[in-house]
Design a protein around this nucleic acid. Structure first.
Length: 418
DNA sequence: TCTGGGGTCCTAGGACCC
DNA sequence: TCTGGGGTCCTAGGACCC
């Protein structure tokens, strides 16, 4: 089959967190619809989580942007309504949407909590023409779940994604290759997927301001200035993209990590260690749950002044043991920390190796086996009774949670790669 | 009441080897 | 006393995504 025969949908929930919050509140007796007033979902500034996570369309009219501080947002709009995030709710809404999509195609790639690709290729005989099927999907989600989506329809994932952005909210838009010139090329360069602030400013310096400018630019010049990233975005500008709709994201998982912004500045080693232990408990449990061992452990920190640094180490005996990982984490931290006050700590486990029983036995010895059994027992208890059922003694009266991280505990696997 | 958390990939430079 | 080049692995940092 030729790529031009593929039919791909990109389904994007409009202002996802905010819409889901609005629907939930209406269902529970709220009289106002958050979507119809200037409102945002945002974290708590008292714990230094005060940023805008999602905004309503009326809030957008005040030029409020996702990611900016609530302080800035309230300056722009003093009567802004701010609600706290409820990630568990968002998971449920996301799952409910996926279940509807599965009625149309089993071939779905969950791209994030609020976006997915659906492969509609060869399904016309079941569901009719793609555009009317997309409209039915959109209406069914609106009717059953109460929120709106924008759907892009094209012959590859990049164009479907760009298409879903063209019209919001509650819309179906096609962006087939023959429509690129008219619909995509006039857009500003920063609207192209994978062109962020830094890339955009480099392109401006080359006299490239629209997606069309980039599409028509000399590929060799772009490659010279922007390396492989340049080649990729040049192809995107021309609508060239051939990746598959991948159903099983977990196969390609490269690593996992957890991090946290602490409500106070960390200025002493014992506190830092306790937070790192708490993060290790969470990340190592997720690692075991994914049935992988890790061979690279990394620690990252952000200072009071927002300077970031990281330190990592390859370990020659891959592990999934909380204790072993924590010992490495502690070492790494002690090697780099110079005593500067920290606002944020994180750990990341990568270099994943499938944990198959015959492989792990190579590394096992009695000592390790003891910790393996302990980890499993703790995981089982926490799974049954919740993460708070057990905590290490060090956390008692510390004011620090025994497990930290897990805003998106199980789902979704985020990826910036199509 | 001032700046989240979870990801992926790429690049540069140094160490080390032949 | 002058000073190769190719290759791989590792680490730190940065850019991008939602």
């Amino acid at each position: 089959m030729h790529d031009k025969d593929k039919i791909i949908f990109h389904i994007d929930v409009n202002s996802a967190y905010l819409s889901w919050e609005a629907v939930y509140r209406l269902q529970h007796g709220a009289s106002v619809d958050l979507r119809k007033i200037p409102s945002v979902v945002g974290g708590d500034p008292k714990t230094r989580h005060g940023i805008v996570l999602a905004k309503s369309i009326p809030a957008k009219k005040y030029r409020i942007k996702t990611g900016e501080t609530l302080y800035e947002a309230t300056n722009k709009c003093p009567n802004l309504t701010i609600v706290a995030p409820n990630y568990a709710l968002y998971m449920k809404c996301s799952d409910a949407m996926i279940n509807i999509l599965k009625e149309y195609s089993p071939h779905i790639q969950r791209f994030s909590v609020d976006e997915c690709f659906l492969n509609f290729t060869n399904l016309q005989h079941l569901h009719g023409n793609p555009v009317s099927a997309a409209h039915r999907i959109k209406e069914q989600i609106k009717k059953k779940l109460g929120f709106t989506v924008s759907i892009g329809v094209s012959s590859n994932k990049l164009l479907a994604k760009m298409g879903s952005d063209l019209k919001k909210p509650d819309a179906v838009t096609t962006l087939f290759p023959e429509e690129i010139k008219e619909k995509m090329w006039p857009l500003p360069i920063e609207d192209l997927y994978m062109v962020g602030r830094d890339t955009a400013s480099k392109l401006y310096k080359m006299g490239i301001y629209t997606i069309g400018d980039l599409a028509k630019a000399d590929l060799n010049l772009i490659k010279y200035k922007l390396k492989s990233h340049g080649e990729m975005i040049w192809r995107y500008a021309n609508g060239i993209e051939t990746s598959d709709v991948r159903m099983e994201n977990y196969i390609t998982r490269r690593g996992l990590g957890n991090s946290t912004t602490v409500s106070f500045d960390v200025e002493d080693r014992p506190t830092a260690h306790l937070i790192l232990l708490s993060l290790t408990e969470m990340t190592a449990m997720r690692l075991r749950d994914s049935e992988n061992l890790c061979s690279i452990v990394s620690v990252k920190a952000k200072t009071h002044e927002f300077h970031r640094y990281s330190h990592q180490r390859k370990v020659y005996s891959p592990t999934d043991s909380t204790k072993e990982i924590y010992e490495i984490v502690k070492d790494l931290f002690d090697e780099v920390w110079d005593g500067e006050p920290l606002r944020h700590l994180g750990i990341r486990l990568s270099g994943l190796i499938p944990n198959e029983p015959y492989q792990t036995s190579i590394f096992d010895n009695k000592y390790k086996e003891k910790y393996r059994k302990l980890d499993k027992a703790v995981d089982d208890l926490r799974q049954k009774y919740g993460s708070k059922i057990l905590m290490r003694a060090g956390f008692l009266h510390s004011g620090i949670k025994p497990m930290t991280g897990g805003v998106h505990e199980d789902y979704p696997i985020m990826s910036s790669i199509l």
